[in-house]
């Protein structure tokens, strides 16, 4: 949703030019105090010393980052080895988010394409149907998913009653359940940008390819796909980024074995770990990764825009 309505700028006028500063001031102040300042404060906290049972001592320290990357033994006096625990958790998060993105792409691409090729009156209705569930509370959606997938849940009941399986499938507390939960959380983010791209696509190109005896799948792969690549790319980013830092899906559907970054961070503030600088450092590492991905995608988008303009 962020992708479609972004920037714009085509219809800008200067009717209220003199009042501009005053009009924008409340937004600047609110967001600077409540978003920008907190992120800066989080960066500072990640370099402070931890206070037991939460909070910090105002003393510079690299301990949080050191703990993240290096293992110095139980008493901290051994030569540093690479600490794999947290890197593994980050790696698992990337992997799970990647799998969820792939799943969203496999289901979302045909869906977006199908919607974009409906009649002009029907398209908004389909888009509306796809987006409604997104606006239902994420917690409720995740709980509903868990209820549906439980060993004694309605899905297993149904599959057993039609004789497809003999004993219940164990889906909850697996990696797959988390991927399914993430897919369910962010699917509209995949469908909407691809839909927007296909809707703008000029189908005369596909017809030309067909006239030159390209098969339908060749046309899809070599003509349509390159043309709508920016939309597909945007969809993947919009699913991948929130999936990586998600908390509810891994917490409720994954169980203890499928720990992801979100749970690691949460545990430092709400759980038993109580290490604020470490939680701040892990958040900073996640934020840095996300900003790198967003910058990279902005560059790709700019490149695609430039190629489109030529």
């Amino acid at each position: 949703m962020a992708a479609g309505a972004a920037s714009g700028g085509s219809a800008t006028t200067d009717t209220y030019k003199e009042a501009r500063t005053w009009l924008l001031l409340p937004a600047w102040v609110t967001l600077a105090i409540l978003v920008l300042a907190p992120v800066i404060m989080m960066l500072i906290y990640s370099f402070l010393t931890k206070e037991f049972r939460g909070g910090v001592i105002w003393e510079f320290s690299l301990a949080a980052y050191d703990q993240f990357f290096f293992d110095r033994g139980l008493f901290g006096d051994e030569p540093p080895k690479i600490e794999w625990t947290y890197i593994t958790i980050f790696w698992r998060s990337i992997w799970q988010a990647g799998a969820a993105t792939l799943l969203s792409l496999v289901i979302g691409f045909p869906t977006a394409y199908f919607i974009a090729t409906r009649s002009e009156n029907m398209r908004p209705v389909w888009v509306f149907l796809i987006t409604i569930p997104y606006w239902v509370n994420l917690l409720i959606r995740t709980v509903s998913m868990k209820f549906l997938l439980r060993d004694q849940g309605p899905l297993n009941d149904f599959l057993m009653s039609i004789g497809l399986i003999d004993s219940p499938l164990h889906i909850v507390n697996t990696n797959f359940a988390v991927q399914l939960g993430l897919f369910y959380s962010y699917l509209p983010f995949m469908v909407l940008p691809i839909y927007a791209a296909v809707e703008r696509y000029n189908f005369a190109l596909s017809e030309a390819a067909a006239d030159l005896y390209a098969s339908k799948w060749t046309t899809l792969r070599r003509v349509l796909l390159p043309a709508i690549k920016p939309g597909v790319f945007a969809g993947c980013i919009l699913v991948f980024v929130p999936s990586m830092g998600s908390f509810l899906a891994p917490d409720l559907l994954g169980g203890a074995k499928n720990f992801m970054i979100g749970s690691l961070i949460e545990e430092q503030f709400k759980g038993n770990a109580g290490n604020w600088p470490f939680g701040a450092a892990a958040s900073m590492i996640l934020l840095t990764m996300v900003l790198i991905i967003l910058m990279f995608s902005a560059r790709q988008q700019a490149k695609a825009d430039k190629a489109g303009a030529e």
Binding site: M42, I265, E266, A280, S283, V290
Partner: peptide, 11 residues
């Protein structure tokens, strides 16, 4: 753009 959990921690 900031992941929700990061915004939560920061706030």
């Amino acid at each position: 753009m900031v992941p929700e959990i990061v915004l939560a921690v920061a706030t």
